[in-house]
């Protein structure tokens, strides 16, 4: 049964190359079929409607016990399937900690994490992760890196899936290279391809473009949007760059530090596909100012 499910999503995946959103990822269609195999409740997964959150934090607190304030304090957040959410805030506001909670790398001290309303207890192939600095396996070639996930899940033709994704991110020609021989931008694209190769319903990105130069960074943002547009995974994108957050996301969640809490959630109404031209629009500039003001106020508050 499992194989049939994977093949289905594989076909959906292949179908994505003509540019249409993919069933396996998109919000209104039956949510991620992989979920069914993993949770053992495929019927339930398929019957969900759009309003069911894909990811949900219920009063999550993470306390390292070392400082006066918890890193994340009583945060509740719902993220819809196919939504692109940016977690924005100054360093130390707990946004990376929150991402680690989403990924299952860190269990909350208090509160609960749900993936498709099932308790999310540890890292799994249902949440792909991309880190700030690339975390490709140095001992595997580019294509082997991308094929790692599909191979572990027992999908058919892992190398084929990997090549397809490398083509998608425009790196089909370097598939046999070692990761160390690629540029920083290429390494991050391979990282994104690898995270997508297991067809995860959720893609978690921890300042993925933070270490890139400004030009590469802006190209990577457009690249990411085009990939997201084709596959429509649910994305949680951590950044401290206000413009990046507004440009990419449907919703920007602004965080405050000490303790880490959600300061404000701001919907970003710009139509898609977006290009960097929107940076000059009045609405963009207003949103940017609005968010900058919140961060300044919050920073001052926690400064006291």
């Amino acid at each position: 049964m499992a194989r049939g499910v994977y093949e289905q999503s594989l076909h959906a995946f292949t179908g994505s190359r003509d540019g249409s959103p993919v069933a396996a990822f998109s919000a209104p269609l039956p949510p991620q079929r992989l979920v069914g195999t993993a949770s053992g409740a495929p019927a339930l997964a398929n019957s969900r409607d759009v309003s069911t959150p894909r990811l949900r934090l219920d009063r999550v607190t993470v306390d390292f016990g070392k400082r006066r304030h918890p890193a994340v304090d009583d945060v509740s957040l719902s993220i819809a399937a196919g939504e692109f959410v940016a977690l924005l805030g100054p360093s130390g506001c707990g946004k990376s900690t929150l991402l680690n909670v989403f990924a299952g790398f860190r269990a909350p001290t208090r509160g609960h994490v749900y993936l498709d309303e099932q308790p999310h207890l540890g890292p799994s192939a249902r949440c792909g992760v991309v880190f700030q600095r690339h975390s490709l396996f140095p001992w595997m070639t580019v294509v082997e890196n991308v094929a790692f996930g599909p191979r572990r899940l027992g999908l058919r033709d892992p190398l084929g899936i990997a090549r397809e994704l490398l083509d998608l991110v425009g790196l089909g020609d370097v598939s046999e290279a070692w990761p160390s021989s690629l540029s920083g931008g290429m390494q991050q694209r391979v990282g994104i391809a690898r995270a997508l190769a297991t067809k995860p319903p959720v893609l978690l990105m921890d300042e993925p473009f933070g270490a890139l130069d400004a030009q590469t960074r802006s190209l990577m943002q457009e690249e990411l949007l085009s990939i997201w547009d084709r596959l429509r995974p649910t994305v949680v994108f951590v950044t401290h760059d206000i413009e990046e957050a507004i440009f990419l996301a449907d919703r920007v969640v602004v965080m405050e530090a000490l303790p880490g809490r959600i300061a404000r959630e701001i919907q970003i109404p710009f139509p898609r596909p977006r290009s960097h031209d929107i940076f000059d629009q009045q609405a963009f500039i207003e949103r940017r100012r609005e968010i900058a003001d919140i961060i300044r106020v919050e920073a001052r508050k926690s400064f006291r």
Binding site: F105, G122, V129, S135, R194
Partner: peptide, 27 residues
């Protein structure tokens, strides 16, 4: 061995034995 590599392997469906063979040992 870089802990991020182990975290990545986990989030790609790596079982403990697969992580030992394919991440820890080559790392």
């Amino acid at each position: 061995v870089d802990p991020r590599l182990i975290a990545s392997a986990k989030s790609l469906g790596g079982t403990p034995s697969a992580i030992l063979r394919e991440v820890i040992l080559p790392g």
